[in-house]
Structure formats: structure tokens, C-alpha cells
Amino acid sequence: MALHRRAVLLFLLVILMLSGTVLGPRSAHATTQTETCQSFNVPVTLGGILLSTPATIYGELCNPVGGPSHTVQLLVPGGTYGHIYWDFPYQPLNYSYVHALTAAGYSTFNIDRIGTGRSSHPPIGLLTVTMNTNAYVVHQIVQALRNGNIGNHSFGRVLLVGHSLGSVTCWIEAGIYHDVDGVIITGLLHHLNSVSLAGVVATLYPATLDPRFANKLLNVNYAGYLTTEPGTRGKDFYYVPGADPNVLQTDEATKETATPGEFDSFAVPIVDGISTLINVPVLVVVGQKDDLFCGIAATDCTSAATIRQAEAPFYSPKAQLQVVAIPEAGHDINLHKTAPLWFAAAKAWASQHLAP
């Protein structure tokens, strides 16, 4: 009898692995009650002859209190960030995109990229995660959302929302697979400020040397992963006068990793024309103080008009490109005091093109 029970348990575990594991409900922010959330581990593969390794993507599906919407927003974080970027725990009324958009009636699926947070961490020595890897994984998540494999609800429309490196992923996914209905690009333009970018790269070091990941020192799945040195995120990603010091502290405490392959392949989609292949509406949002993409040697970010003039040649007419410039904000537009301005812009644009 005991052997029979073990066999049944093993069978159930296999079913969970194959169908997208439900990790149970995650409480909505106690002060808001605008959404109900569940956590999932979604099975994916990493693509390519040598990259067929099975893996899982951790994500949190948050629905409005009235139930799932017709349109789901798939949120893709940037380098050294995980799902917390989109659902920031400090003062969520000000800094949580998830809260703002579920309050507007949208479902959101907020993920850790492959190699970050609670998603699988492929060993770097055997496997290099690149931007194309990320795009292929996100493509599978899009299909899972459409097919009802996440939350037992088939979403009719999928809106991709990316930040920085996650925005590059959205370019590639939308440009190659053509299976989404709209794209919001944040923290990414087609002209880089090479000096500022070099400054960010200079702050990267092995994640296992960082206090946050010290317990992973002997974990082969973390070997080769990178993060930012302690105390550098303000300079790297913020317009500090426009940020709450408590946000910076929370950011440091919750920071994530990235791979050398992601950084090595980050710039290619900026110049290879992939964004011109996007055939659905696109919104580009950038902080006016984003030193990674704004400045004399990069893009004039003084207004939405100047940004659009610089970006329009990189999108097709089908993109119906719209641009928003957020004042007093650096690279991490979610995490500046003016974040509610961008959340409002996202709600207005999404309701115009892809109503809940």
C-alpha cells in the first residue's frame, strides 16, 4: 500500500511539472486589495540544438478583483532585476506597476527572466543565456497565457511590457514571433550613451561575491552570473534627486543577476533592425534623466517630440509609435517619485489600443 501511495504521488508530481506548477495564492498588498495573485512555475525549453534543456519560469499572475481580464500584460524585467521591479514592495501605491494596472482592470503576469530570482538558473559553463534565449522563453509564456495554461484562463490578447534588457527581449519576441497585440518599451532607445553604459558595466562583478548571493558561492548554477557591486545602483540606474533613499535600499536588498551572454548580445538588436518588424502598436517611455540613452552623444530626451523624432525611423508605420517622456526620472522609471505619471500614461495608452 505504501508503495502504491508513493507511485501516485510521483505521478502527481510529474503532471505538475508538465502542466505549469501552481505555487498557491500570493496575497495582494494588504493596503490595496485591488488584485488577487497566484504564483506559477511554467515549464519552458531554452531553444537551439544545445539549449533544449527543460527549465521553469517563475511568474505571478495578478487579476483584478472582478476576475481575469481579456487582455493580460506580460511584464519582463531588465538586467539585474526580477519580478519585484514591477511589483515593488516599498510603498506599492506609488511604485507598483502591477497594482496600478490591475486597479485599471488589467491582469498582469510578472516574471523572473531565465537565470533570475525563482526561475531556473542554467549553469553558465554549459549554457549561455542570450537575448534570443530570453525572447524564445517569453514566446512560450505568451503561448501559455493564450492557451489557458497559466491560471486556467485563456487570454484573448497579450500586451508585452519590458524594461531595459527586458525591452530588448520584447523587441525580439514581437519582431520574430508576431504573437502579441501590443508592446510597451521602457528604458530603451536606439542610441546609447556609451560613456554611461561603460560605467554600468564597470560595476558588474560575480554575483557569488555579493552579500545577497553569498549562500550561492558553491552553487554551480550561479557560477558566472553577474550583479552590480554594492552601493552602485543609484549611480547606474537612477536620477538620485528624484528618488526616495528607501527605494534605493530596497532595490539593493532585492537586486538580481544577469548573464555575460545577455550583456554580450544586448546591443545587437539595437542596430539589426528587429524593431522595424514589429507590426502592432508600440509605446516607448523613457525618463528624461536616463543617462544610459539620453545626452549630447545619444538621444535628446528633453521632450516626447524629440525622442519620437529620433526613434520613429526604427519602427514601421504599423507600430503607430507613441512616446512619453517622464520628468525627474532616470533609467528605472518604476522606481522614481514620478512613477505614477508613467503608470497613468501606460493605462491611457493601453485603454486606447488594448482595453482590458
Rank of each mutant, 00 (worst) to 15 (best):
Q309L: 13
Q309V: 11
N132Y: 01
G187P: 03
G59P: 00
G148L: 02
G330M: 01
G125K: 04
G82W: 09
I141F: 14
D244L: 03
A310N: 05
F343Q: 00
G330A: 05
G231R: 01
A55Y: 03
S303R: 07
L75F: 02
T31L: 10
I274C: 09
I111S: 09
E262Y: 00
L75D: 02
L197E: 04
A135K: 13
P64G: 02
H29V: 01
N149D: 11
G105C: 05
D87Y: 03
T116H: 02
G261H: 01
P206G: 08
P77E: 11
Y58K: 07
P77F: 06
D272K: 09
L16K: 11
V142W: 02
L16F: 13
S119V: 04
R212L: 11
S167K: 01
G166M: 14
L9F: 08
P89M: 14
P269A: 13
D210K: 03
V280D: 01
A348M: 11
L61H: 00
K216I: 15
V8H: 08
L51E: 12
P327W: 13
L218T: 15
I124F: 03
T21R: 05
G125T: 13
Q322K: 09
S39C: 12
A297M: 08
L61P: 01
A135S: 14
T227P: 10
Q309R: 13
E60F: 05
G287F: 03
N94Y: 06
P260Q: 15
V324L: 08
D291H: 10
K347A: 06
A298D: 04
N152I: 11
Y81F: 13
V323H: 02
S96T: 08
H336T: 05
K216N: 10
V324P: 00
V138Q: 06
T208F: 03
N246G: 04
G330W: 00
F11E: 15
T133R: 06
W171L: 15
Q249N: 10
L248N: 05
P281S: 14
S351Y: 07
V14A: 12
L204T: 14
G166K: 05
G59S: 06
G148I: 04
L292C: 13
P260S: 15
V137N: 07
A28G: 12
L335K: 01
V220M: 04
D87R: 07
S196D: 10
D300V: 03
N219L: 13
V14P: 04
Q249A: 14
I111T: 14
T34C: 08
Q91H: 13
